[in-house]
Design a protein around this nucleic acid. Sequence first.
RNA 1: GCCCGCGUAACUCAGUGGUAGAGUACCUCCUUGGUAAGGAGGAAGCCAUCGGUUCAAGUCCGAUCGCGGGCUCCA
Length: 638
Amino acid sequence: MADIRVSVQDGESKAFPQGVVAAEALKELVSGKQRKQTVAVKSNGHLIDLTTPLTEDTVIEPVAVDSEIGLDILRHSTAHLMALAVKELFGEQVKVAIGPAIEDGFYYDFDREQPFSPDDFERIEAKMTELVNARLPFSRKEMSRDEATRWFARMGEQYKVELLQDMDADTVSLYTQGAFVDLCRGPHVPDTSWLKVFKLLRVAGSYWRGDEKRQMLTRIYGTAFADKKELSQYLTRLEEARKRDHRRLGKQLGLFTIQDQIGPGLILWQPRGALLRRLIEDHWKDEHYRHGYQLLYTPHIARQDLWKTSGHLDFYSENMYSAMEIDEVMYQLKPMNCPFHIGVYNADPHSYREFPIRWCELGTVYRYERTGALHGLMRVRGFTQDDAHIFCRPDQLEEEIFNIIDLNLRILNTFGFDQYDVYLSTRPAKYVGSDDHWKLSTQALKQALEKKGLAYQIDPGEGVFYGPKIDIKIKDLLGRSWQCSTIQVDFNLPERFQMTYTGDDGADHRPIMIHRALMGSLERFIGVLIEHYAGAFPLWMAPEQARILNITDDQAEYCEQVYSQLRARGIRIEKDLRNEKLNYKIREAQLMKVPYMLIVGDREKQDGTITIRRRDGENLPAMTPEAFVDFVTEECRH
RNA sequence: GCCCGCGUAACUCAGUGGUAGAGUACCUCCUUGGUAAGGAGGAAGCCAUCGGUUCAAGUCCGAUCGCGGGCUCCA
């Protein structure tokens, strides 16, 4: 049999007999140190195990265990290791489902009569360590799909059987480690001794194949790293992230509260949070005015008939609160603002010359959310959307969408967000509207995105039944991404509400309607903002921009004067003139993340100045109150 | 809604069947101190709610409500 040539990318190359495994080739081709770090290789671009035989000329690229791909492999193998440990401990009681690597870790789903609880972790981890020390190899075997199906069926692993039945491939690969055989594409670490640094983190329920009508499985989440230091860094990072949790900061900073007596998912904005919200709303309104929008206000309830006409009763009733009777007529709380804006539209006749019409509203809506879905400010039952509806002609669609995206990014940027994921959702299986309409608007969304130079992913079939949409998601600190912005084209409501305008031909036409929200909901947006800034808001939106602190009672009167003066100039200032040490007052202001502390002792009183301490601990030279006003005004410009 | 975990003072948390605890915050007094906690004292709890087991329940069991982590769903 002819030799084959194996070369390392950008490195040496050598001839080997056919069937040489990657690990052996590496021994000759790369240094010991690099080899030790190599967990798998890319062979001609495909990831393979170190133990996989090579059969043709190959360029291999070592994958380091601490690289992104290497960690993925490590974690995936650790998931298998955990499954093996669970199998050894609980044997027949447990059926295995799936166990992939995920961002920052891995999980494995198990089916067991009595679900796992964190109390089981210690035992499972101990067993895992035992198996690591046993240095069990991960060995790969290929077999036909039918053969594999029969094998798993014999073992009673019905979940694996189901997975196999849904695959197209004729041959599949299995990995064996110890007594555990798993259906798996691989690759894996060569043996369990690679898996020394891991930790089980939490248990959770999850539905088989994500379908709530199917079996509830118990999922164990864990993580694994190439070395101990990285694991402890990761755990520290989790701890830090917890400190930034908007629910914790919301309480600490006195921004908002949620109370049993009021009800779950209902937000009470405390003075500081309310002020923060007002600042955001004011900015939002100003920007919309500048960009040709008009502001509307509409009610919170409407006759049930309205929701019948809009179709919400048919398509959305499970999210709506029950009807209430008023004077023998049924009314219902609004889950959306659109029908009201249409009401405004239909109050008057319209001509094509008026278009585009851009109406916006900070509209408070109420939606029933399942209790398990509620989450601080991020997912609530009553929330205020920064909603807008744009009515236009087909020839204006693309430009309008471009304008919306432009304003959207502009506003997100102002708030300090420049990292987001953009999705374009296309026509679902069930839909209304003509194919032409769908084509035109999907195309318009796509072109606007491209013109704006935005990278996006397509979510096929994930559009709303009434039209395609663009979603923009912002990531929070724990890496969870939250949908904020959404831009949706709607063919349905203009039809249902018989909306018309007079065209240049004198005939009636249907306008195109675009729904959009930039921040999504103020609640969620502020939740993300709190975490983004860890509560240390930029000066322009800080509810308390400055706090004046006296050193002794002797300066109290002077402080009162400066306080009134600055307040009158529009600075959001508070005072702390208590009989406490300066240290103590600084600490409190610091914990409240107040951007500027104005410190006044005898020196300042004498000179008619204030000394300024920034929240990062640095001091600015003493200045007059007037100079401070200019200073703040300058910093707030955006 | 589903799976697991958790509800003790305003907050953060101790308390494994036998008289409810700490720190912080709060109130009073002392202290007037130049850049992240000065000192002393005081008040504060139907141990989420309802039911059960027990001579005895914050503690064990069940239900309900709420919260947390996921799943599902979504702004």
